[in-house]
């Protein structure tokens, strides 16, 4: 059964990457996966790296690799602010693998509990997640 649609805007610092009406938004927040349908209650949450799925219909899905960000649902409109949103076929897997190795190395080298280690682990997690997103 088709769900009613609602407007979704996905913004990155480099511009808008998506702005259409969809039936459902599926993404990952700090607390786990979340699916939003029309008329969801007002929400403001943090997003973690993961796969963002925008359902134009049950079969037509637009996918992005999303970095850290925020999701806001207000007045039956969803606004996603993400640092990066890349179509899976545009991911440079070689570069990501290199960055993952560098980040892991930096995390191992950094003093335990330091901000340096936390930053390296964040970078490693982002690269690792992007690498798991299939084309």
């Amino acid at each position: 059964m088709a769900h009613s649609k609602f407007p979704v805007q996905v913004l990155t610092p480099e511009g808008e990457v998506f702005g259409e009406d969809v039936e459902m938004v599926s993404t990952r927040t700090g607390l786990g996966s979340i699916g939003l349908l029309a008329n969801h209650e007002p929400l403001l949450g943090t997003l973690v790296p993961g796969e963002l799925r925008l359902y134009r219909s049950e079969t037509e899905i637009v996918r992005f690799a999303q970095a850290e960000g925020y999701i806001q649902f207000l007045h039956n409109k969803a606004l996603l602010l993400v640092e990066e949103a890349l179509p899976p076929d545009q991911l440079d897997r070689e570069l990501l693998s290199r960055r993952l190795a560098d980040a892991n190395e930096a995390a191992a080298r950094a003093p335990e509990g330091s901000e340096e280690q936390a930053a390296a682990l964040r970078e490693a997690r982002r690269c690792e997640t992007f690498l798991t997103i299939g084309v």
Binding site: T29, G30, L31, I34, E41, P42, L43, L44, G45, T46, E68, Y70, L74
Partner: peptide, 17 residues
């Protein structure tokens, strides 16, 4: 103001911002 549900909570969101 409309009641907004924060995930996880407003302070955590602010700390991220």
């Amino acid at each position: 103001r409309i009641y907004i549900e924060y995930e996880p909570d407003p302070e955590a969101v602010l700390k991220r911002l």
